[in-house]
Design a protein around this nucleic acid. Structure first.
Length: 746
DNA sequence: TTAAGTTAAGTTTTT
DNA sequence: CTTAACTTAA
């Protein structure tokens, strides 16, 4: 079992008791160590799987580890907790948060919800959001929470500082609003769990006894609150194994505290430290390039990665005149490598600093017919149509969530406008009841007048759906919402590409619900909403499909690809202008450099580094020099070209513009089907070829996965799909969309 | 009072 | 180039 592991790796596996810090360089096989360690604990040390937990940052990482542990351990592995910080906390809070004054069916607010809530609070406190941005307050609050500073402490620290005092008031109000909405934001998930552990010794002891062996991945990214959480969990048995790499700490802006790794030995004086410095991932050229860059950072634990891998090709470096040429080159290079059979699409990844850079690549890839997938940008669950429908589900699930109710009260249009909403809100505020409760009492709000009549049908609808909750599945409820509100019908009537894309997203949401129902033993609406609240885009990457992946350097952490393109390597873009011009440029640029190190070390066989002399940013053309990081790569490792300075700038600019316009119109003219092929994960399977065909008709007996057998009583054509009505023997009459109901003719 | 149409402003990185 | 705020018409 331990064969093929190097000495250091074995040492890490065998060291099971007491605190352990594993400094694992990029590609040094840390996941392998963690999974083997788990297996060793169970099989050799006789530890009950129930007593083991592993914490990661993304669901994808958790899923991967789960899979590998399952393979190794076999029986009993399912009782090991393998999950992210956030879902671990949710799981604990769903059970015990009533000990600290919330109800266990709390909702989780994402960034959008937070902003809406904050806007509300600013209005109430008469703060002009043009001068003081909602985002600014939210950032301040988030940082306070990362450091476990509660509103009272914050306000104490704000003594004498007018700006800080105002922030303290906002923080206080914000927390109060969350509480009355029975909602937690992302940071609260951690903070409240810590609070729970600190106030309830019994609960803490329960988890101390349960989690006797704890492992934490990507430890360098933990913030103070997360560290405190781990410290509390490991308080009794001290069997804490953390794995991290200070050189890959890239989440300082999110509160990651690099001292957590640098000071681990101070916190736990009896800690053992093991360094994993042999890299198994990259060619030595790539690794040397990475070493050359990271060497320029001052505040780091000294270590040098080495490898026995072959030297490999030199690093391909090109400076282009414009960003279009850069995108062009990368598209052509990928096409060439796929054509010659060297790589498949999925072996290639394009990495960049900002999400905005993805657009150019997307356009080029469509023109060149290269299948691709963009990770990040607008999260699926942050899309308007998805948030609308989820808000309906949330309202049905937990009407204490004012935000959700207000989001959908006039979607679709019910003739309820801002004025009516303020009046209801005022009433609710005065009576200290929730917004939804106020809606139910619309008749008793005198200022409403005739508007009260418009509110009633909405309340009736929500109440009706709520009573259905007991007997119907989540997917059935969702379908009812879509049906009753006419959400999809409205989009169909719009008949634009955008509306079609939205309908597809809704279809995908329906598939996700059905998938959830099938995977879960006891599916509930709350359960589904929870799962949905904690997914990140990176989680949806699947290895089976063949497409080029485009993403930010941040999203790329933890992944590896044979062929990597680092695009936009320009001073001002990467390192970003923000970091160069900040108050503390040395520190911020070191963080950017670590990001660059992460980028380089994603590559296994081939690395291409590109940049452009000019590019459009926010409608303005910027002229940038080659990134300082490129210059830090030893020059003997580089091969490539630098674009000659062009004399006639303006003429160039104009022809470029024309070319761009052409590419854009081509982009628009492409039939939907092709665009979906390019981005398969966003497309709904049956929609890719347009209209689906049915092998059954009215009168036929069909079978449904959940509802069993039934007779088709009606088929209505709607856009690309059919709405099928079936009279089931056991479940009664149901209406459903053919594309996802997957009915089988018998 | 609502809803559509028009103009102005703003964009690092994210669980 | 997108999104939010403002204006104006119904």
């Amino acid at each position: 079992m331990y064969e093929g592991m190097n000495e250091k790796q074995q040492e890490a596996v065998l060291h099971t008791e007491g605190p352990l810090l594993i400094l694992a360089g990029a590609g040094s096989g840390k996941t392998r160590v963690l999974t083997h360690r788990t297996a060793y604990l169970i099989e050799e040390k006789g530890v009950n799987p129930y007593n083991i937990m592993a914490i990661t940052f993304t669901n994808k990482a958790a899923g991967e580890m789960r899979e590998r542990i399952d393979e190794m351990v076999g029986y009993g592995s399912e009782s090991i907790w393998v999950s992210t910080f956030h879902s671990t906390c949710v799981r604990i809070l769903r059970r015990f948060i009533d000990h600290i004054g919330f109800s266990t069916n709390f909702t989780i607010y994402d960034a959008d919800d937070q902003k809406t809530l904050m806007k509300d609070i600013c209005k109430r406190l008469q703060i002009d959001t043009k001068i003081y941005k909602e985002r600014m307050f939210l950032n301040v609050i988030s940082h306070a929470k990362d450091e476990l500073i509660d509103p009272i402490t914050f306000s104490l620290q704000a003594q004498g500082d007018y700006t800080k005092q105002r922030q303290a008031t906002v923080y206080q109000e914000y927390q109060a609003a969350l509480r009355s909405n029975n909602a937690l934001d992302f940071d609260d998930l951690i903070v409240k769990t810590v609070e729970l552990f600190k106030t309830d010794a019994e609960v803490l002891d329960y988890y101390n006894e349960k989690f006797r062996y704890i492992m934490v991945d990507e430890y360098q990214d933990t913030n103070t609150a997360q560290f405190e959480l781990i410290r509390l969990l490991a308080r009794k048995y001290h069997n804490l194994c953390v794995v991290g790499d200070d050189d890959q700490s890239i989440y300082k802006f999110r509160g990651a505290n690099i001292h957590n790794i640098l000071n681990f030995e101070k916190e736990f004086p009896d800690a053992a430290v093991i360094k994993l410095e042999q890299n198994y991932r990259s060619t030595s050229n790539i690794l040397n390039a990475a070493n050359g860059v990271i060497r320029n950072n001052v505040g780091r634990k000294e270590k040098v990665l080495w490898t026995e891998n072959p030297v490999g090709d030199k690093i391909d470096f090109h400076q282009f005149d414009t960003a279009y040429e850069e995108a062009d080159y990368i598209a052509m290079d990928i096409a060439k490598k796929v054509r010659t059979g060297k790589y498949r699409y999925r072996d290639c990844a394009v990495l960049y600093r900002t999400n905005a850079q993805s657009r150019l690549f997307e356009e080029r890839f469509i023109v060149s017919n290269i299948p691709y997938k963009i990770v990040g940008g607008v999260n699926f669950y942050a899309r308007k149509e998805i948030k609308d429908l989820l808000a309906y589900l949330k309202t049905i699930d937990n009407a204490q969530d004012d935000l959700a109710v207000r989001r959908i009260i006039n979607v679709p249009k019910r003739g309820i406008g801002a004025t009516t909403l303020t009046r209801v809100q005022d009433f609710a505020y005065e009576k200290e009841i929730s917004f939804y409760t106020a809606l139910k009492m619309a008749d008793d709000i005198p200022s409403l007048g005739r508007s009260a009549a418009k509110i009633k049908p909405f309340v009736t609808f929500i109440q009706a759906m709520r009573s259905k909750l007991e007997y119907f599945t989540v997917s059935q409820i969702l379908q009812d919402i879509i049906e009753e509100t006419g959400y999809v019908r409205e989009l169909e009537a719009e008949d634009t590409d955008e509306a079609k894309a939205r309908i597809e997203n809704i279809d995908e949401l329906l598939t996700k619900v059905v998938t959830y129902e099938q995977s879960e033993e006891n599916p509930t609406l709350s359960g589904f909403l929870e799962e949905v609240a904690l997914v990140a885009d990176i989680d949806s990457l699947d290895e089976d499909s063949d497409y080029v992946v485009l993403m930010t350097l941040h999203s790329a952490k933890g992944l590896e690809f044979p062929q990597v393109y680092l695009a936009g390597m320009e001073d001002g873009l990467f390192p970003s202008y923000m970091s160069i011009a900040s108050d503390n440029p040395t520190e911020e640029i070191e963080e950017e450099r670590r990001l660059c190190y992460v980028g380089i070390t994603r590559a296994k066989e081939n690395l291409a580094v590109t940049c452009a002399r000019s590019r459009m940013i926010r409608g303005e053309t910027q002229y940038n020099r080659v990134s300082r990081f490129v210059k830090e790569i030893p020059s003997e490792l580089l091969a490539g070209t630098v674009a000659p300075e062009k004399k006639n700038q303006e003429e160039e600019q104009n022809s470029r513009r024309a070319e761009f316009a052409k590419a854009k119109s081509a982009f628009r003219a492409k039939p939907m089907a092709l665009q979906q092929q390019s981005a398969p994960s966003r497309a709904f399977a049956s929609a890719s070829t347009g209209k689906i065909t049915l092998d059954y008709q009215v009168g036929d007996t069909v079978k449904h996965m959940k509802f069993g057998e039934g007779v088709v009583t009606q088929i209505v054509e709607g856009g690309r799909d059919y709405e099928v009505t079936v009279d089931f023997q056991t479940a009664g009459v149901k209406k459903m969309f053919a594309a996802f109901a997957k009915l089988k003719k018998i």
